[in-house]
Design a protein around this nucleic acid. Structure first.
Length: 603
RNA sequence: GCCGACGUAGCUCAAUCGGUAGAGCACCCGCCUUGUAAGCGGGCGGUUACGAGUUCGAGUCUCGUCGUCGGCUCCA
């Protein structure tokens, strides 16, 4: 990871432009809806937004009108003027703005800033005015509105957003915009969005026949087509190889269990509403499993364990079902049936660090394999306020395990950032954020400490002294779920998968039907050598066959005509368009086998 | 779940003001025997997501349901 010191976004000129654009937008909206209420409008990645409470819903036409009005305002070259005020003055200024009054009250108490975020020290209260618009704001802003260039911003979308991010609060209307230093930057950004759209896994997934969703099957329940099934099998093969080397054992558990198990694990009170409702049989409730861990705990507990047996690492890629809220579903990234790259490791306290880092090590191997260059590890911690609610109520163990993770990461010199109030209910975790080659962010892998469940399941091992001890458990899924991983890989590679992952690795293309038999024999020969190859013997022209193979992003095309047939050779066309003629079939086979064996990214 | 937008053939899209639903690709049948991204001709294919309503008449207007998308919330 590059450790270059970068200018902080909050201190950048771009940040000021976006913040100012948000104010200009708020002015435009308030001029159109004088009775509207303003809330907050911060810069965000790539742009800004402002949340309003308006008498009616905004339409796409409104967006155009707002944008037009904004252009007029910025051309007016109005200065941004800051003024520090007392809380009472501020209350007077925003007398008819209830949301602002709420924010002022927070500032006054010194608890929350103007965005409702917790504060460390009591802040000064300031307002910013430009033209007809005044906002409660700590800034900073640009000098005048003309610095928000009229051809360097664009309103992007209208969305609902809860006041202060709490779904119990009123839903506001959020207008998203993007703003840049100049026209070219805006254009580049919009192009980048177009580019991302072309890579969208939902689009490519359909085009490359990897998966489909069917209304009649149900939302969030993907059907894996043969090409997708191949990719998943390759991922499993990879994971099994890696885990076998790392001493994991594979287990299998049912998709259905009695309610008691999830009561015991402690999941039910936390997650009942996001589990499929139970079915009742002979007076007993059964749930479809949303996770594998309770059953792995049962396997651990199925016999007496010695410290000599530990660590025990149980792996399973079982299918789990989670009833995600309808609005949360998103392509393959958020689904209701999922296969986790799951394993649970039972360790002693002394073994913890090494085992935890062993998982981090797996991450790095996967990153390298897939060419993931940018990533951040986030250590998610508990919050004191959440104890007994979001989190298991045992502060001592929280602090202890959090520190164990922190120490392990620091000792191994793995950079990480800490996030408060983001842990799992049973312990702290490391989540990994990664970025695809075009800079789109994904949350994939997870590595979680669990100090709660082993105890709940009464898991024990006998230590050297002959006393019983409770092991720690590490939950980990370096490849996330198959669904998310495939979605990521589609976008990361834009469907141009490395050979080992490509559903079809070689397509043999006969020029006329005189070479059909030769082509078919080549395909058979490759298949018998473990290469996924097919011959296109259709009555189409060679060019059409090549086009189709290109569209399906097949890495290697072997074109065979009379010349190749006579010489027992092939003409190789690589997916990138390059071409090599007169290659002996055996030579090509060695090349493909090598790329597959090494899981090489290059063709 | 909430706010908003959208839903036409397997896919990508068209259909003026409410007036008989159309094209390309795919698929099927022929002809062509071809040298590195689409050869030509013909055919099949729709209860316009589903259900109600308004209307002489609805793909188009209204309501409901389902689904998808942009966000919010959530993600063991």
């Amino acid at each position: 990871m590059s450790q270059q010191v970068q200018e902080k976004y909050e201190e950048s000129y771009l940040y000021k432009i976006r913040h100012s654009a948000a104010h200009v937008m708020a002015q435009a909206v308030m001029e159109m809806f004088p009775d509207g209420k303003i809330t907050i409008g911060p810069p965000v990645e790539n742009g800004f937004y402002y949340d309003f409470d308006l008498p009616r819903s905004l339409t796409p036409e409104d967006l155009e009108a707002i944008e037009k009005r904004m252009r007029g305002i910025v051309q007016g070259k109005h200065e941004f003027n800051k003024k520090v005020v007392s809380a009472d003055e501020a209350k007077k200024i925003f007398a008819d703005q209830p949301y602002k009054l709420e924010l002022i009250a927070g500032l006054e108490k010194g608890e929350l800033d103007e965005y409702g975020e917790p504060l460390k020290e009591k802040p000064e209260i300031s307002i910013y005015q430009h033209d007809t618009f005044v906002d409660l704001c700590r800034g900073p802003h640009v000098e005048n509105t003309k610095e928000v260039k009229q051809d360097a911003f664009k309103l992007m979308s209208i969305a609902g957003a809860y006041w202060r991010g709490d779904e119990k609060n009123k839903q506001l209307q959020r207008v998203y915009g993007t703003a840049w230093e100049n026209k070219q930057q805006l254009k580049d950004y919009l192009n980048q969005l177009e580019e991302a759209k072309k890579r969208d896994h939902r689009k490519l997934g359909k085009e490359l026949e990897i998966f489909v969703f069917d209304e009649e099957v149900g939302p969030g329940l993907p059907l894996w087509l043969p090409n997708g099934a191949i990719m998943i099998e390759e991922l499993e093969k990879l994971a099994k190889e890696m885990e076998e080397k790392a001493g994991y054992q594979r287990v299998r558990t049912p998709n259905l269990t009695k309610e008691d198990l999830f009561v015991r694990s402690g999941h039910l009170p936390y997650y009942a509403e996001s589990m499929y409702p139970p079915m009742e049989l002979e007076g007993v409730k059964y749930y479809v499993k949303p996770m594998n861990c309770p059953m792995h705990h049962k396997i651990f507990g199925s016999k007496g364990r010695s410290y000599r047996d530990l660590p025990i690492r149980l792996a399973e890629y079982g299918t789990c079902y989670r009833y995600e809220k309808s609005g949360e579903l998103f392509g393959l990234m958020r689904v209701r049936s999922l296969q986790m790259n799951d394993a649970h490791m039972y360790v002693t306290e002394e073994q913890f660090e090494q085992e935890f880092l062993g998982v981090i090590d797996l991450y790095h191997k996967y990153f390298e394999l897939f060419g993931i260059e940018k990533y951040v590890m986030r250590l998610s911690l508990h919050s004191k306020a959440g104890l007994g609610k979001k989190y298991v109520d045992n502060e001592r163990l929280w602090l202890k395990t959090e520190d164990m993770v922190r120490r392990a990461m620091t000792n191994a010199d793995v950079p990480f950032v800490e996030e408060a109030d983001e842990a799992a209910f049973y312990g702290p975790k490391i989540d990994v954020q990664i970025w695809s080659v075009i800079g789109k962010e994904f949350s994939l892998a997870t590595n979680q400490v669990d100090f709660a469940q082993p105890e709940r399941f009464d898991l024990k091992y006998t230590n050297k002294e002959g006393n019983e001890e409770v092991p720690l458990c590490i939950h980990r899924a370096p490849l996330s779920t198959h669904e998310r991983m495939v979605g990521f890989l589609i976008e990361h590679f834009a469907g141009n998968f490395p050979v080992w992952l490509s559903p079809e690795q070689v397509r043999v293309i006969s020029i006329t039907d005189a070479q059909n038999e030769y082509a078919e024999n080549i395909a058979k020969h490759l298949r018998s050598n473990g290469v996924r190859a097919h011959a296109d013997l259709s009555a189409q022209r060679m060019n059409a066959k090549i086009r189709q193979a290109q569209l399906m992003k097949v890495p290697y095309m072997l074109v065979v005509g009379d010349n190749e047939m006579a010489a027992e050779q092939v003409s190789l066309r690589v997916r990138d368009g390059s071409q090599q003629n007169n290659i002996p079939l055996g030579e090509f086979l060695e090349r493909v086998k090598d790329k597959i064996a090494r899981r090489a990214r290059e063709l």
